[in-house]
Amino acid sequence: MLSNRTHSMVRVACFNASLEAGRLAGKKSQLNGDELSMALATPEHPLLKNTAAIIQAVRPDILLINEFDFAADYHRRIADFQRHYLSVPQCNKPPIEYPFSFTAPVNTGLATGFNVAADKNSRLANTYGHGAFAGHYGMLLLSRFPVIDGQVRTFQKFLWRDMPGNLLQSVRLPDGSAFYSDDAQQRLRLSSKSHWDIPLDINGETLHVLASHPTPPVFDGTERRNRARNHDEIRFWLDYLDPGSPHYHYDDCGQAGGFDGKRFVLLGDLNSSPDEGDSDKHAITRLLAHSAINSELLPVSDGGLQHSPNNPYAKSHTAIWRMRADYVLPSKCGIRPYQAGLFWPSAGQVDCELFADEQAVSDHRLVWIDLELTRS
């Protein structure tokens, strides 16, 4: 049992590691989805080696990796990542073992079977989320603690139209006509990848990991479809956690309702900052101010400040394109956060050599927070 202040302390991290086909193959076209399996089959890929070294340096107990391509052979991919990279000392770092994991299908690259854009001549791919193949830019959770399998909830198939007050209807062309086809307005899914609620058993206590990777609010046109979707993907969690919400949510097993737990950590590459960037900042600002979330402990780094020395937000940047995009946000209930950080050493600091080759490291930085589980 837990006392008011216990030994049940965990380090939780989020890392958009860019372990996606285009980055691994060094190209963005003619991808087939096998690139990650091929890279993991040997212990020599520089991006995977540096990723493992960063993980070994920070040593999180629970780690969400964004951009780990999903495929039918995901069991082998996870096993190869552990065996060939995480279990092997990288850059003189001790190995790290994750006996438990979770992954699931995502919407990226998944064919819809209908025209997404109202203009049938549009070059927009007819997929539920942007990707070169089904499973592109997937997610993976690694954990030292068991997943409570029977209580996992995934929301890959939740329809955008079923969010009350959604921004789907706001996505319009300059002439005022709808950007999305009638089929898309009825059948397009909200998540560009997925939303997951994954409960973990930590020494007999439950911690829910709320994971997602909303679409970047860019790479669109004047209709700003990605900006609207990014906003609503973040808003999904706002309503999920709000006891006063109508809880319109339904998961992929048909279970309806919002969050039904005590402790949680919300994490992922949310592609939105309250201070910078092109997103609709209303959702991320409200999320950080949510009554259930403790956002007071801000992860910072010296590397971010060195990268953007004249930027007032530089120390909290999590991506080299100068923005806070990645988050690890604990609940106020049942958790005491006591330190947090970004793994981004500046020149001359320990491990700065891991970032010397920009092609062999992600354009995001690993974010972590140390938590103590408490009774209230």
Rank of each mutant, 00 (worst) to 15 (best):
K193L: 04
R172M: 10
V171T: 12
D197C: 08
P217D: 11
Q185H: 12
S143L: 09
K157M: 09
V171A: 05
L188W: 00
F219P: 08
G176Q: 10
N203W: 07
Q255Y: 05
N203C: 08
C253N: 10
L141W: 05
Y248D: 02
L188C: 00
A228V: 06
F158V: 07
D239L: 06
A184N: 05
F179D: 02
L207R: 02
S170H: 10
I148Y: 06
L167I: 04
L207I: 09
D175A: 10
Q169M: 14
V209H: 06
R153Q: 10
R144Y: 02
H231D: 05
S170A: 14
A211G: 15
F158P: 01
N230R: 03
W196M: 11
F236S: 14
A184C: 06
D252M: 13
L238I: 10
R144P: 00
S191E: 13
E223L: 03
R229K: 13
A178W: 06
G204P: 14
L210F: 04
P164D: 07
D183E: 11
F219I: 14
S245T: 07
R189N: 00
H247Y: 06
D182R: 11
Q169W: 14
L173V: 07
Q169R: 15
Q186P: 04
A178N: 13
E233N: 03
L141R: 02
W196I: 03
L241V: 12
A211S: 14
Q156R: 12
D201M: 07
Q185T: 12
K157Y: 11
C253R: 09
P217F: 08
L210W: 07
S192P: 08
L142F: 10
L142D: 06
L159P: 00
W237F: 15
I148R: 14
Q151M: 04
D149W: 00
N230L: 08
P146F: 01
T206H: 04
W237L: 04
P243T: 02
I202Q: 05
D175R: 09
L141T: 11
G176A: 04
D232E: 05
Q185M: 15
P246V: 11
P164S: 08
V218I: 13
D175P: 13
F219C: 15
D183Y: 06
N226H: 14
S191W: 07
N166D: 03
I202C: 09
D162P: 05
R187V: 00
V147E: 04
R172E: 11
N166H: 11
